[in-house]
């Protein structure tokens, strides 16, 4: 039998550790300025956030549902979605965050990365 006091000490230290870790993760910049939108693990859209001059919106949809994504200079966010929990919308806009925006019911993830993973600059094959 473990004493209640011991449990409290264990949980207290775990709490402090994880609180610190989460702060570190959320405050640490990734150094990327490209937002890659993934659907089902596959990148469907890439945008260089630093190169955006005028904000715009576009819709990513699959047979699971749709998300409206808003791109503005330096930021990306989900502004509308037909998912039940709307966590993706509540995540707000991200600019340089290690934590991605995700809509788990639609299997949509928006990551900030260094390289474009889809679009015109991504080749179909590499000759070498």
């Amino acid at each position: 039998m473990i004493k209640t006091k011991t449990w409290i000490i264990i949980f207290g230290s775990l709490l402090a550790l994880c609180a610190g870790l989460s702060l570190w993760i959320f405050l640490k910049p990734t150094g990327g300025n490209v937002a890659n939108v993934y659907l089902d693990g596959k990148c469907v859209h890439s945008v260089d956030l630093s190169a955006v001059t005028e904000s715009y919106e576009f819709t990513v949809s699959s047979d699971r549902g749709m998300n409206v994504i808003r791109v503005e200079k330096g930021y990306i966010s989900v502004v509308d979605a037909d998912c039940p929990d709307k966590v993706c919308i509540h995540s707000g806009r991200i600019s340089d965050s290690a934590a991605p925006i995700c809509c788990l019911p639609h299997r949509l993830v928006i990551k900030i990365e260094k390289e474009m993973k889809a679009g015109d600059d991504v080749p179909d094959a590499v000759s070498k």
């Binding site: 609180a19 290690a98 934590a99």
Partner: peptide
């Protein structure tokens, strides 16, 4: 499961926050 389904290991970055929230709500 989310990491497996979306193939996004970056989701693990939420883990510390989820541990903290789990401890508070779980308590």
């Amino acid at each position: 499961v989310a990491v497996l389904i979306t193939q996004t290991p970056e989701l693990f970055s939420y883990l510390p926050v989820l541990v903290v929230s789990g401890m508070i709500t779980g308590a």
